[in-house]
Design a protein around this nucleic acid. Sequence first.
DNA 1: CCCGAAGGTGAGCAAGCGCTTAGAGCTTGA
DNA 2: TCAAGCTCTAAGCGCTTGCTCACCTTCGGG
Lengths: 212, 212
Amino acid sequence: MSAADETAERAAGDEQPWDEVTPEAAKKLLVAAVEAFAERGYHATTTRDIAGRAGMSPAALYIHYKTKEELLHRISRIGHDKALEILNAAYDGVGTPTERLADAVRSFVRWHAGRYTTARVVQYELDALSDTHRTEILGLRRQSDAVVRRILNEGVEAGEFDVPDVPGTTVAVLSLCIDVARWFNTQGRRTPDEVGALYADLVLRMVSAQKK
Amino acid sequence: MSAADETAERAAGDEQPWDEVTPEAAKKLLVAAVEAFAERGYHATTTRDIAGRAGMSPAALYIHYKTKEELLHRISRIGHDKALEILNAAYDGVGTPTERLADAVRSFVRWHAGRYTTARVVQYELDALSDTHRTEILGLRRQSDAVVRRILNEGVEAGEFDVPDVPGTTVAVLSLCIDVARWFNTQGRRTPDEVGALYADLVLRMVSAQKK
DNA sequence: CCCGAAGGTGAGCAAGCGCTTAGAGCTTGA
DNA sequence: TCAAGCTCTAAGCGCTTGCTCACCTTCGGG
């Protein structure tokens, strides 16, 4: 089994997400919140809407979460942990920097497309977090950035990549992947796998040493 | 003067934007709204906040705009017109598809970075528009998409580009440029010109025929 | 068999929201 | 000279918001 397949299995394996959220009612509310936040945005979503989607009364929300913002924070934290785990799995995989970069982009994009409602909340609702919570989350994002930069640097050292501006290219690669959550939707013609494959190819072209 | 320089001049030339908005008070309110929407998002911004930034009373807003949503629509419309104009200028420029694609990416990215508050509202607050207004704006976005796709197709026909998936690559190129508005900020180390140059280079690598 | 903890509800509070209205001040042309 | 017509404000209306509270159920352990 190749490193790519292993990562694919891992990403596809836990397609019953939010299992870490208990009890059942808290999970139902959280899933409802993800849907609502992704659809309308955090500030346009009311606690009545979230509770309604979960089939509960508005007051039920406050048994499991102190505030609406705490709900967002739980979602954001779990999502960022997952995103970072995906990148780390690719970094720790076997293979050349080229293979591991392709692996990282493929699985990272697949997650942003396949779980685009979650990813949208995770990537585009940071501003709605409290100062404390946002600071915590930004720490995780810096780690994601560092993982990609490390792969690029290793590829340059190995002579596989020609990247004049590693920090700039790191930002661009992550940006390209993250933005998938904005435009992807299930009505589109492509599957998450297809987008992942396309993007892995495009990113490799961006960094490959030109053979002239 | 090259085609690239002409576009640069045009993009840099009207750095006193919103000149089409009159009278003065309406412009002041609109600029205040752009700042507030970019900072907090449409739904988290109050009409009192907008009026306050413009140094006026909350009621003053309703002399110049029927609703808060109409304000967003004016901003979105003007911004999308500008973005489309930038892409069209690059398309209509002289030069090979390679030069015109680089020109398009460079000036499009420069706008998203240099005017990132406006771009943020334009690109990330579409959902807050009314159905009618959103439909109108989506028409402009489809035109932007078409321009980029046309340049890619012409490059493929000319044998300059190796792009197996033109629609997918079109989405990726636009996505990469648009996302600049999300992460760019004036505290960063790069100028809009530098980001534009970097991204033009990255995009050319994505589409260039590989010389093996 | 009853008790207390835990999970749930209906009603509703205080605050803040988008927006309106009555009228004040300033400019302008008959 | 002054009525007409803008532009703007102070005050506030009706409504929705995030969140609370008194109370009701369900259920495992003494």
